[in-house]
């Protein structure tokens, strides 16, 4: 079933921070939502999540900071149990063992509060919760910002495999077109609270039309190296 949200918009302090925007997502689609800081990417992500949840759909969210997902007063075991219940799973124990091992957080003590784990481990814990069950969509907002590169790359590869196996749709929110380009087939470019360009990844990389897409494409990596 195509996921569809029409006329998403948002205001803050009387100012429009997201102009009316419609999003359609095919099952299993991988979409990158890219733009500079403050362009409205996360706002659109939040609006999309709210709209789809209001339709009764299951949406998993990995916010930019684990602080947005984890209650500092609750143990990690509590969070895990709560997420499993929300997805209608008994306790998620089997998934927990496999995913914790794959994300290399199996050494963490779930009895601790979030701040008892490093930021990187917290972020991977939130990703593990998002991969529980079979949500209709996973929204990942800068999911590897707190991770070291080697672990970040392994985590993104794991996400790729999971999404492919479960045919789950993904929206990857990032300021880094280089990162998005390797992970998604379709890009949505935002600037000043508007969706300014939308096309297949290759098209935007090779032939960007708007000034924002041109800027992102021109700065998508530090350098090319020989293979």
């Amino acid at each position: 079933m195509t996921l569809s949200a029409i006329g998403l918009s948002a205001m803050r302090s009387g100012r429009i921070i997201l102009h009316p925007t419609s999003v359609e997502i095919e099952p299993g689609a991988r979409i990158g939502l890219v733009g500079a800081s403050g362009s409205g990417k996360s706002t659109l992500g939040h609006a999309l999540i709210d709209a789809l949840k209001a339709q009764g759909l299951q949406v998993a969210h990995v916010p930019q900071s684990p602080d947005e997902a984890l209650d500092p007063l609750r143990s990690l075991a509590f969070h895990w149990h709560e997420a499993a219940q929300a997805r209608g799973l008994a306790d998620g124990a089997a998934h927990q063992r496999a995913i914790f091992s794959a994300l290399k957080i199996d050494g963490g003590d779930l009895r601790k509060r979030p701040w008892g784990w490093s930021r990187g481990m917290q972020q991977r814990f939130v990703i593990a919760m998002a991969l529980m069950g079979t949500p209709d969509l996973i929204v990942l907002d800068e999911p590897t910002s707190a991770l070291d590169p080697v672990i970040a790359a392994a985590t993104m590869n794991l996400l790729d495999r999971h999404l492919e196996r479960t045919n789950t749709a993904m929206v990857l929110i990032t300021h880094d077109l280089g990162l998005a380009a390797r992970r998604v087939s379709h890009l949505m470019v935002m600037a000043a609270g508007r969706l300014v360009e939308e096309a297949e990844t290759g098209k935007i990389l090779n032939n960007p039309q708007t000034s924002e897409a041109k800027r992102l494409a021109a700065h998508r990596n530090w350098m090319e190296v020989p293979c």
Partner: peptide, 10 residues
């Protein structure tokens, strides 16, 4: 990892 994360391109 730098290639996988798009920091450098081959």
């Amino acid at each position: 990892a730098a290639v996988a994360l798009g920091s450098i391109e081959v």
